[in-house]
Simulated assay, not measured.
Amino acid sequence: MQHVVEVSLAEQLEGTLPPDLDLDLVEQAILAVLAAEAQALEVGVLITDDAHIHTLNRDYRGVDAPTDVLSFADDGPPASFVVAGDGPRYLGDIAISYQRVLAQAAEYGHSPARELVYLAVHGTLHLLGYDHERGPEDAATMRLREEAIMAELGLLRGA
């Protein structure tokens, strides 16, 4: 089963990221989340800045403020044309603010790489239907999945 993850960097961030930041780790994190799914899935990821994610948050959620991560699930009807049966199903896109990554990593006392991976895991779980905002039970369920994936990646605490 093949999962497809495309990680891209917003043009305005090119050349500003530290050279030791491993964007492949973002891909690995999302693949770890998708591994439990029964079908091949495709996810797109955009690492961007606060200004861009602010615009997305305002335009799509009606929240006029930057945020750390947004998930855009492909919840539209299936296409009317024939799709290859062995190709991955498009699950959706994730946008992550790298400025929020840096601020939250400093606030929580761990590395930017760990925070970036956590936000990628969090966003992917949202694409799969997890939602911490529905209530305490849903939040606890989502947190357990996040912690399991982070532990699998060796990034549960203090990385």
Rank of each mutant, 00 (worst) to 15 (best):
A113K: 09
I53E: 04
L125I: 03
L155Y: 08
V45F: 08
R143A: 15
Q28F: 00
G76H: 07
V45P: 01
A151F: 10
L25Y: 04
E152M: 06
L102Y: 02
D22T: 08
V7T: 09
H126W: 10
E37K: 12
E133S: 15
L125D: 01
S71R: 00
I53T: 03
Q99D: 15
E146M: 13
Q12Y: 03
R143M: 12
Y118N: 08
T55V: 13
D86Y: 14
F81E: 15
M142W: 05
T48N: 11
E27L: 04
A151H: 13
G62E: 11
A51E: 03
R114I: 04
I94Y: 05
A73E: 07
I53G: 05
A103I: 03
H52A: 12
T16E: 11
V69G: 01
E107D: 12
N57V: 02
A79G: 14
S80Q: 14
A65C: 07
A103P: 03
R58Q: 13
L31G: 08
A159N: 11
E6A: 14
L21P: 03
Q28S: 15
A113C: 05
L34N: 05
A36W: 10
F81K: 02
I96F: 04
L155E: 04
A35K: 15
T67F: 05
G92S: 02
A139M: 12
S80D: 14
D138Y: 06
D68A: 15
R114F: 04
A140E: 00
A38F: 00
D49K: 03
V63Q: 11
V69A: 02
V82H: 12
R100P: 01
V101G: 07
L153I: 09
A103H: 08
T16I: 06
L91E: 03
D64A: 14
S8H: 08
L23V: 12
G15E: 11
V45Q: 00
L156C: 02
L153A: 10
T124M: 09
R134K: 15
Y130D: 05
A159W: 13
E146W: 04
V63P: 04
L116I: 10
I96A: 08
I30R: 01
V45Y: 06
L17T: 07
A105W: 05
L34S: 06
L127N: 09
Y98I: 06
A51V: 03
D75T: 11
E137M: 11
P112L: 06
A113M: 12
A84W: 13
V43A: 03
P136Y: 08
P19R: 11
L41R: 00
V45S: 06
T141A: 15
T124C: 09
L155P: 01
L156P: 02
R114T: 12
G85F: 00
E152D: 10
